[in-house]
Computed example of a mutant assay.
Amino acid sequence: MKKVVTLACAAIALTAGLAALTYTLGEVESRPFRLMPDNASLISQGREIYAAYCASCHGESLEGHPNWQEQGADGLFPAPPHDASGHTWHHADELLFKITKYGVAKAAGLENHSSAMPAYEGVLSDAQIVAVLSFIKSRWPKEIRDRHDTLNARTLR
Protein backbone atom coordinates (compact mmCIF):
# COMPACT_ATOMS: atom_id res chain seq x y z
CA MET A 1 0.00 0.00 0.00
CA LYS A 2 2.85 2.33 0.86
CA LYS A 3 4.38 1.79 -2.63
CA VAL A 4 1.06 2.64 -4.29
CA VAL A 5 0.78 5.89 -2.33
CA THR A 6 4.40 6.75 -3.11
CA LEU A 7 3.87 6.04 -6.82
CA ALA A 8 0.64 8.07 -6.82
CA CYS A 9 2.42 11.01 -5.18
CA ALA A 10 5.25 10.76 -7.71
CA ALA A 11 2.75 10.68 -10.59
CA ILE A 12 0.94 13.74 -9.21
CA ALA A 13 4.23 15.59 -8.75
CA LEU A 14 5.33 14.68 -12.29
CA THR A 15 2.00 15.80 -13.75
CA ALA A 16 2.15 19.08 -11.84
CA GLY A 17 5.72 19.63 -12.99
CA LEU A 18 4.83 18.99 -16.63
CA ALA A 19 1.83 21.30 -16.36
CA ALA A 20 4.03 24.05 -14.91
CA LEU A 21 6.62 23.54 -17.64
CA THR A 22 3.94 23.67 -20.36
CA TYR A 23 2.52 26.84 -18.83
CA THR A 24 5.98 28.42 -18.65
CA LEU A 25 6.84 27.49 -22.24
CA GLY A 26 3.51 28.91 -23.39
CA GLU A 27 4.35 32.16 -21.63
CA VAL A 28 7.65 32.50 -23.50
CA GLU A 29 5.78 33.30 -26.70
CA SER A 30 3.56 35.94 -25.12
CA ARG A 31 5.99 37.74 -22.83
CA PRO A 32 7.62 40.94 -24.02
CA PHE A 33 11.30 40.67 -24.82
CA ARG A 34 13.28 43.46 -23.20
CA LEU A 35 16.41 44.68 -24.88
CA MET A 36 19.39 45.35 -22.62
CA PRO A 37 21.60 47.94 -24.33
CA ASP A 38 23.63 48.56 -21.16
CA ASN A 39 24.66 44.93 -20.61
CA ALA A 40 28.29 44.83 -21.83
CA SER A 41 28.49 41.05 -22.07
CA LEU A 42 25.24 40.82 -24.04
CA ILE A 43 26.34 43.68 -26.32
CA SER A 44 29.61 41.91 -27.06
CA GLN A 45 27.74 38.74 -28.02
CA GLY A 46 25.26 40.78 -30.07
CA ARG A 47 28.08 42.54 -31.95
CA GLU A 48 29.46 39.14 -33.04
CA ILE A 49 26.04 37.88 -34.11
CA TYR A 50 25.35 41.12 -36.00
CA ALA A 51 28.68 40.81 -37.86
CA ALA A 52 27.92 37.20 -38.81
CA TYR A 53 24.23 37.48 -39.76
CA CYS A 54 23.22 41.12 -40.29
CA ALA A 55 26.09 43.32 -41.44
CA SER A 56 26.16 41.97 -44.99
CA CYS A 57 22.75 43.57 -45.60
CA HIS A 58 22.39 46.27 -42.94
CA GLY A 59 26.02 47.46 -43.05
CA GLU A 60 28.92 47.11 -40.66
CA SER A 61 28.00 50.43 -39.05
CA LEU A 62 24.23 49.79 -39.15
CA GLU A 63 23.95 52.23 -42.09
CA GLY A 64 21.72 50.08 -44.32
CA HIS A 65 21.52 50.41 -48.09
CA PRO A 66 21.26 53.71 -49.94
CA ASN A 67 17.70 54.50 -51.05
CA TRP A 68 16.36 51.96 -48.57
CA GLN A 69 12.90 53.54 -48.71
CA GLU A 70 12.56 52.93 -52.47
CA GLN A 71 11.28 49.61 -53.75
CA GLY A 72 13.77 47.85 -56.02
CA ALA A 73 13.09 46.34 -59.44
CA ASP A 74 12.56 42.99 -57.70
CA GLY A 75 9.68 44.49 -55.69
CA LEU A 76 11.65 44.36 -52.45
CA PHE A 77 12.92 47.21 -50.33
CA PRO A 78 16.66 47.32 -49.62
CA ALA A 79 17.82 46.68 -46.08
CA PRO A 80 17.10 49.72 -43.89
CA PRO A 81 19.61 51.25 -41.53
CA HIS A 82 19.48 50.27 -37.89
CA ASP A 83 21.19 53.45 -36.74
CA ALA A 84 19.33 56.60 -35.69
CA SER A 85 18.58 57.51 -39.33
CA GLY A 86 16.40 54.43 -39.83
CA HIS A 87 13.05 53.37 -38.44
CA THR A 88 14.07 50.42 -36.25
CA TRP A 89 13.69 52.48 -33.10
CA HIS A 90 10.09 53.30 -34.07
CA HIS A 91 9.14 49.71 -33.19
CA ALA A 92 8.80 48.25 -29.70
CA ASP A 93 11.18 45.54 -28.48
CA GLU A 94 8.63 42.78 -28.87
CA LEU A 95 7.87 43.61 -32.51
CA LEU A 96 11.58 43.86 -33.33
CA PHE A 97 12.06 40.44 -31.75
CA LYS A 98 9.17 38.93 -33.73
CA ILE A 99 10.34 40.47 -37.02
CA THR A 100 13.79 39.02 -36.49
CA LYS A 101 12.53 35.61 -35.44
CA TYR A 102 9.55 35.13 -37.77
CA GLY A 103 10.12 37.61 -40.62
CA VAL A 104 8.25 40.79 -41.46
CA ALA A 105 5.11 39.27 -42.96
CA LYS A 106 4.37 36.87 -40.10
CA ALA A 107 5.34 39.35 -37.37
CA ALA A 108 3.16 42.11 -38.79
CA GLY A 109 0.34 39.82 -39.93
CA LEU A 110 0.73 40.83 -43.58
CA GLU A 111 -0.45 38.32 -46.15
CA ASN A 112 1.20 38.35 -49.56
CA HIS A 113 4.10 40.49 -48.30
CA SER A 114 7.53 39.74 -49.68
CA SER A 115 10.67 40.79 -47.89
CA ALA A 116 14.35 40.13 -48.36
CA MET A 117 14.63 39.96 -44.56
CA PRO A 118 14.99 36.30 -43.61
CA ALA A 119 13.35 34.81 -40.55
CA TYR A 120 15.91 33.59 -38.02
CA GLU A 121 13.71 31.05 -36.24
CA GLY A 122 15.75 27.87 -36.04
CA VAL A 123 18.94 29.80 -36.88
CA LEU A 124 19.33 32.03 -33.82
CA SER A 125 18.07 31.30 -30.33
CA ASP A 126 15.73 33.76 -28.60
CA ALA A 127 18.67 34.85 -26.41
CA GLN A 128 20.82 35.49 -29.49
CA ILE A 129 18.06 37.57 -31.07
CA VAL A 130 17.78 39.65 -27.89
CA ALA A 131 21.59 40.03 -27.89
CA VAL A 132 21.78 41.32 -31.47
CA LEU A 133 18.85 43.69 -30.97
CA SER A 134 20.40 44.90 -27.72
CA PHE A 135 23.64 45.59 -29.61
CA ILE A 136 21.75 47.59 -32.23
CA LYS A 137 19.97 49.63 -29.55
CA SER A 138 23.26 50.23 -27.74
CA ARG A 139 24.47 52.14 -30.80
CA TRP A 140 21.62 54.65 -30.79
CA PRO A 141 22.10 58.13 -29.31
CA LYS A 142 20.70 58.62 -25.81
CA GLU A 143 17.70 60.69 -27.00
CA ILE A 144 16.69 57.94 -29.45
CA ARG A 145 17.10 55.26 -26.78
CA ASP A 146 14.95 57.34 -24.42
CA ARG A 147 12.24 57.69 -27.08
CA HIS A 148 12.38 53.95 -27.71
CA ASP A 149 12.04 53.26 -23.97
CA THR A 150 8.97 55.52 -23.90
CA LEU A 151 7.48 53.58 -26.82
CA ASN A 152 8.11 50.31 -25.00
CA ALA A 153 6.45 51.64 -21.84
CA ARG A 154 3.33 52.60 -23.84
CA THR A 155 3.09 49.18 -25.51
CA LEU A 156 3.23 47.34 -22.17
CA ARG A 157 0.11 49.05 -20.80
Rank of each mutant, 00 (worst) to 15 (best):
G122V: 15
G103D: 06
S41T: 13
G59I: 04
Y102K: 13
G75M: 01
E48A: 13
G86E: 04
E111Q: 13
L42P: 05
A73D: 09
F33R: 12
F97I: 15
Y120N: 06
P78E: 03
N112F: 02
S41V: 14
H90L: 15
E121K: 11
W140A: 13
H58R: 06
K106V: 01
D83K: 03
E60H: 04
R34C: 04
E121H: 04
I99R: 01
D38M: 09
A40Y: 01
I144C: 02
F77I: 03
E63R: 07
E63T: 07
S115T: 15
S138L: 03
H113E: 09
E70T: 15
S115Y: 00
A40Q: 13
V28F: 02
R47A: 10
D83V: 12
E60F: 04
N112D: 08
S114P: 00
A52F: 00
Q128H: 11
A79R: 06
I129L: 01
V104E: 14
S56E: 08
P81H: 15
S44L: 05
S115P: 03
Y102H: 10
C54M: 05
S134Q: 14
H65F: 08
G86C: 03
Y50P: 03
E70I: 14
S138H: 04
A108W: 03
G122A: 11
G75V: 05
V132F: 08
E94T: 14
K98H: 12
D126L: 02
P37H: 08
A79D: 12
T100I: 05
K106N: 08
S44Q: 11
H87G: 08
P66A: 08
L95H: 05
A119F: 00
W140F: 10
A108D: 07
L62A: 11
P141D: 12
P118K: 01
K142I: 12
P118Q: 04
